[in-house]
């Protein structure tokens, strides 16, 4: 068995949040205190799970549930999943979850004093097309309070989960909305050091994505790790 795939590139400095982020209080007892150990990418890290629509059925329109239309501002969220070299990540599963328009998740553990919506479950799944494109129809999620600090509110956001081509490309992130005044106050959003990297977490309003008389539209492109240009030491047995 020979592995010929190139390893994935390291993350560019500042583009990823560190886990030791005191302003986000829950990190206190949960972040590792020892340095991470850098290990080579072997078959375990270069390969990864793959999903098929047959076994993981897609749901692209989550603005309706069992024939009941969700309350709130209907939106289309569309974008492309690319690697760092601009190559499309095709056939890849993209999942989202989010609060309803009132800022409450459809979960017993969310005790926020805001109404549930029988028209909204808040969970979607699609697979990217050959160009890496994806598209969801949903509603704009509401902001909600959380206990991190006095009068803390999470900005409007949609959670995204992606796998990409390998174990090493796994990504869970959040998409934010342009112009949200809560972004400047949010320790989760602010935890990423690089301002340009933070800005890429904010979707763009895009008139071309809207559907006239029906839904507003936002564009959110996602970039996963690319591969190194030079191969790893494949089959190097000159020890």
């Amino acid at each position: 068995m020979t592995i010929t795939e190139m390893p994935f590139k390291p993350y560019a400095p500042g583009t990823q949040p560190g886990n030791d982020t005191p302003a986000y209080r829950s990190t206190g007892l949960r972040h590792p205190t020892q340095s991470l150990l850098r290990i080579p990418q072997s078959v375990t890290e270069l390969s990864g799970p793959q999903f098929s629509p047959a076994q993981y059925p897609p749901t692209a329109n989550i603005a309706v549930n069992d024939g009941v239309e969700a309350m709130g501002e209907r939106i289309i969220v569309q974008g492309r999943v690319l690697d760092e070299d601009g190559r499309p990540v095709a056939g890849s599963m993209v999942e989202i979850w989010q609060a309803n328009a009132a800022g409450r998740y459809n979960l017993p553990r969310d005790a926020h004093d805001a109404p549930l919506d029988p028209g909204f479950k808040g969970i979607g799944r699609v697979f990217t097309d050959a160009q890496g494109g994806y598209r969801f129809i949903t509603i704009k999620p509401g902001a909600y309070p959380w206990g991190n600090h006095e009068n803390a509110w999470r900005p409007n956001h949609i959670h995204f989960s992606l796998f990409g081509p390998g174990y090493a490309t796994r990504l869970i992130t959040q998409m934010y909305f342009p112009g949200d005044p809560l972004l400047a106050l949010d320790p989760i959003f602010l935890a990423t050091p690089d301002a340009a990297a933070r800005a890429r977490l904010v979707a763009s309003f895009d008139l071309a994505v809207t559907q006239p008389n029906w839904a507003l539209g936002y564009r959110f492109d996602i970039v996963l790790r690319g591969r190194n240009a030079t191969p790893m030491e494949d089959g190097d047995d000159h020890h």
């Binding site: 560019a12 583009t15 990823q16 690319l82 760092e84 979960l107 990504l171 959003f189």
Partner: peptide, 15 residues
């Protein structure tokens, strides 16, 4: 482009 930043899965990922 550079990679999209990770964000926490949060307490409500059970959806």
């Amino acid at each position: 482009s550079q990679t999209t930043a990770s964000q926490t899965i949060g307490p409500f990922w059970h959806l």
